[in-house]
Simulated scan of single mutants.
Amino acid sequence: ALTTGLELLTSYIMEWTTGGWLWDYERFAWNFQGRIALNPSIRFGIGGMFFLYCVQPLLEKANGALTEKTRSLLSGSLFVLICVDFFYHIFLTV
């Protein structure tokens, strides 16, 4: 319920600042102004629970198997990659 409320609020903020929002749930039954809908909200909740109870423990186990040096190298590499992607999309695409 909280994430669905946040999605609704976000759609209003996006419409106020940009004139529209990025998704449209008009094709789903039980939608509200095409901004939120019951079906995607339930699927998102089930997917979130799957990641929380199934995927996260596996990632924590894999993280525990890494050495501190490997973990630092991996996180630093991902940080650089995200920064490059950010600057590419902000400054080089129009």
Rank of each mutant, 00 (worst) to 15 (best):
residue 1 A to F: 12
residue 3 T to I: 13
residue 3 T to A: 13
residue 5 G to C: 09
residue 5 G to P: 02
residue 6 L to Y: 14
residue 6 L to I: 15
residue 8 L to I: 01
residue 8 L to W: 02
residue 9 L to N: 03
residue 9 L to K: 04
residue 9 L to W: 06
residue 10 T to G: 02
residue 10 T to R: 01
residue 11 S to G: 06
residue 13 I to S: 05
residue 14 M to D: 04
residue 14 M to A: 10
residue 14 M to L: 15
residue 14 M to Q: 12
residue 16 W to M: 09
residue 16 W to I: 03
residue 16 W to T: 09
residue 18 T to V: 10
residue 18 T to Y: 08
residue 19 G to Y: 02
residue 20 G to D: 15
residue 20 G to E: 11
residue 20 G to H: 15
residue 24 D to T: 06
residue 24 D to L: 03
residue 25 Y to M: 05
residue 26 E to N: 13
residue 27 R to T: 08
residue 27 R to N: 10
residue 27 R to Y: 06
residue 28 F to E: 06
residue 28 F to I: 04
residue 28 F to R: 00
residue 28 F to G: 02
residue 29 A to G: 10
residue 29 A to D: 12
residue 31 N to T: 07
residue 31 N to A: 07
residue 31 N to M: 09
residue 32 F to D: 05
residue 33 Q to N: 14
residue 33 Q to C: 07
residue 34 G to T: 02
residue 34 G to P: 00
residue 36 I to H: 00
residue 38 L to A: 09
residue 41 S to L: 04
residue 42 I to Y: 07
residue 43 R to V: 11
residue 44 F to Y: 11
residue 45 G to N: 09
residue 45 G to P: 01
residue 45 G to D: 11
residue 46 I to H: 06
residue 46 I to T: 12
residue 47 G to V: 04
residue 47 G to Q: 08
residue 48 G to D: 08
residue 48 G to I: 07
residue 48 G to S: 13
residue 48 G to Y: 08
residue 49 M to C: 13
residue 49 M to N: 03
residue 49 M to T: 12
residue 49 M to Y: 10
residue 49 M to L: 15
residue 49 M to P: 00
residue 50 F to Y: 14
residue 50 F to V: 13
residue 51 F to Y: 14
residue 53 Y to V: 05
residue 54 C to F: 10
residue 55 V to I: 15
residue 55 V to E: 01
residue 55 V to Y: 09
residue 56 Q to W: 11
residue 57 P to Y: 04
residue 57 P to L: 07
residue 58 L to C: 13
residue 58 L to E: 14
residue 58 L to F: 07
residue 59 L to H: 08
residue 60 E to I: 13
residue 61 K to V: 03
residue 61 K to A: 10
residue 62 A to I: 03
residue 62 A to T: 01
residue 62 A to K: 06
residue 63 N to K: 13
residue 63 N to Y: 13
residue 63 N to R: 15
residue 64 G to V: 02
residue 64 G to P: 00
residue 64 G to E: 04
residue 65 A to R: 09
residue 65 A to M: 11
residue 65 A to Y: 06
residue 66 L to T: 10
residue 66 L to D: 06
residue 67 T to R: 07
residue 68 E to S: 14
residue 68 E to T: 14
residue 68 E to R: 13
residue 68 E to K: 14
residue 71 R to D: 11
residue 72 S to Y: 10
residue 72 S to N: 15
residue 73 L to C: 12
residue 73 L to Q: 15
residue 74 L to K: 09
residue 74 L to D: 11
residue 76 G to L: 04
residue 76 G to M: 04
residue 76 G to N: 10
residue 77 S to H: 03
residue 77 S to A: 14
residue 79 F to C: 14
residue 80 V to Q: 03
residue 81 L to G: 07
residue 81 L to R: 02
residue 82 I to A: 14
residue 82 I to Q: 02
residue 84 V to K: 00
residue 84 V to D: 01
residue 85 D to H: 09
residue 86 F to S: 04
residue 86 F to C: 07
residue 87 F to G: 01
residue 88 Y to D: 10
residue 89 H to G: 08
residue 89 H to V: 08
residue 89 H to Q: 13
residue 90 I to G: 00
residue 90 I to E: 09
residue 91 F to E: 06
residue 91 F to I: 05
residue 91 F to H: 07
residue 93 T to K: 15
residue 93 T to A: 08
residue 94 V to S: 14
residue 94 V to I: 03
